[in-house]
Amino acid sequence: MAPLPKQTRQWIVSNPPKTSVSLSGDDATFKLQTVDTPSVNDGQVLVKLKYLSNDPAQRGWIQSGVDAERLYVPPVRQGDVMRSYGIGEIVQSKAENLKEGQLVSYTANWSDYRVLEAKEVTPVQEDKEAGIKATHYIGALGGPGLTAYYGLVGVAEATKDDTVVVSGAAGSTGSMVVQIAKHVLGCKRVIGIAGGDKKCKWVESLGADACIDYKASDFEDKLWKATEGYVEVYFDNVGGHILDLMLKRIKRYGRVAACGSIATYNDPESTRLKNWFEVIANRIQIRGFIVFDAYTKGNGQEMMNAIRNAVKERKIQIEKQEETIVPTKFEEIPKTWTMLFEGGNQGKLVTELKE
C-alpha cells in the first residue's frame, strides 16, 4: 500500500473575476497552494480525487462583488478553495460502512485529497450491463440529469402535447432534456439549439426532431422555420440573444424554464432583452429554478428514481450521453474548466486527474 499523503494540493480563488477568468499573470483568478493533509478520525474517510465535475454555475459562485443574499449557495470568496463536485476513491477509512478502494461522489473541491465525514460521501456503483460508469453520477445520474427532469416536469410542466425547445442542447443538462422530453415524456416535438454541425447531429441522434446551429449565418431563419406555429415550452440554458429570440417564438401562455445563462456569465452586463414585451403581451410564464429546488419544492428522490428506471428501460440510452473526458494534470485544472465557456465540450465536461 502506498504511503498516505502528508500534504494536499488545492486551487484557491485568488482574484474573483468581474468578467472573463484569467489563467495567468498578476490578476490570475486561481492560485495553487499546498497544505498539510488533516488526520482521519473515527467516522471519517480520506478521499483521493479522480474526476471533477465542470459546471457553468461555478462561474457565478466566484463572481467579484456577488451579493451572498442573492445567491442560492454561499459564494466562493477570495482565499477559498474552489468548489466543485466530483468522484473520488477512498484511500483510508475509519467509517464502518465505507471501504478503502470504494468510489464515492462528494463535494470534491479543487483539492487532490479531502478528509470527510462518512455522511458527506455517497457510494457509486458502475454497471457495465446498463452502461453506467462512475462519471455518470456527476452527469446523467447526478445534478445535470435531475436539473433536466425537474426543469421539464416540475417547472415547465411539459406534456406529450407540447413542443419543447432547449438551448445548450449539446451540454450535459441540455442533452438530458432532449432524451427525457422525447423518450420519457413523449413530447410531440423536440428542437435543440447547439453550436456546430457535429453537435447538432449528435443532438438529433439523441432523439431531437431538429437541431439548429446557432453559429450558422442563417440561424434565425432556420429557428423561425423549426418553430413555425410557435412552441409551448422553452428550456433555457444560455440566456442572452437566444433567449431574446425565443421570446418571439413561444405560444401565448407558454412556459420558460430558466436554468442557466452561460452566454452572460463572463459578461454580466451584456444581456439586453429587446423582446420583453412579448412576455406581457403573450402572458409567457418564466420560472427560474435551481436543481436543489427538486428536493425542497418537488420530490427529487422520486425524480432520480424515474431517471434510473428510464435508463434500465432503455428510454434513456445512457451510453449516448456523451462525455468529454479530459485527462488533466492537477496543475491544469483551471484550464480544463474554462473549456465550458469556449464550447469545447460535447455532453458532460469531466476532468480526469492524471499523475
Rank of each mutant, 00 (worst) to 15 (best):
I286A: 00
V291D: 07
G195S: 14
G343R: 05
E278I: 00
I212N: 02
E129N: 10
M303E: 14
F289I: 02
P3Q: 15
E129G: 10
A148L: 03
E120A: 15
V291P: 03
D267C: 04
R308D: 13
W337S: 08
V40D: 07
G229K: 06
V350R: 03
L32K: 07
S53P: 11
K215P: 12
F341W: 03
T173K: 06
V91Q: 11
K201C: 08
V47H: 05
E278D: 10
G254D: 01
A208I: 04
V40L: 10
M246K: 00
L273E: 04
D293Q: 13
D80S: 08
T163M: 13
V190R: 12
Q33E: 13
V47E: 05
E332V: 04
R255A: 02
Q78H: 01
A108D: 05
A68C: 08
K312L: 10
E120N: 15
G298F: 00
E313G: 06
S53V: 05
L46G: 07
I138P: 12
A118G: 13
I193L: 13
R314D: 10
D55R: 09
E269C: 02
C200N: 15
P268A: 10
L116A: 15
Q58S: 15
S172K: 05
V13S: 11
Y150R: 08
K297P: 05
V326A: 11
I262E: 02
T122W: 11
L141D: 11
E269P: 00
C211V: 02
T8I: 10
A294C: 08
A57R: 06
Y51F: 08
K188S: 08
P17Q: 05
V279N: 03
F341V: 01
L206N: 00
N299V: 00
M176Y: 03
A156E: 06
T159A: 10
G25R: 07
K18F: 10
K201F: 00
M304T: 04
N54L: 14
L116V: 05
G207R: 07
E313S: 15
E332L: 04
V165M: 10
C259D: 02
G65W: 02
P123Q: 11
A216Y: 06
T173D: 12
M304D: 04
S261D: 08
K198C: 12
G240E: 03
K99F: 03
G260D: 02
V81Q: 15
L49Y: 01
M176D: 10
V165H: 05
V238G: 03
T122Y: 15
K348C: 06
P327V: 08
M82R: 03
L141W: 07
T324I: 08
K225C: 01
T147S: 15
C200T: 09
T227S: 06
P16S: 09
Y106E: 12
K6D: 13
T29E: 08
V21M: 09
G168F: 00
V115I: 07
L23C: 14
N309L: 14
P144H: 04
L52A: 11
T107S: 14
V35Q: 15
M176K: 15
A130E: 09
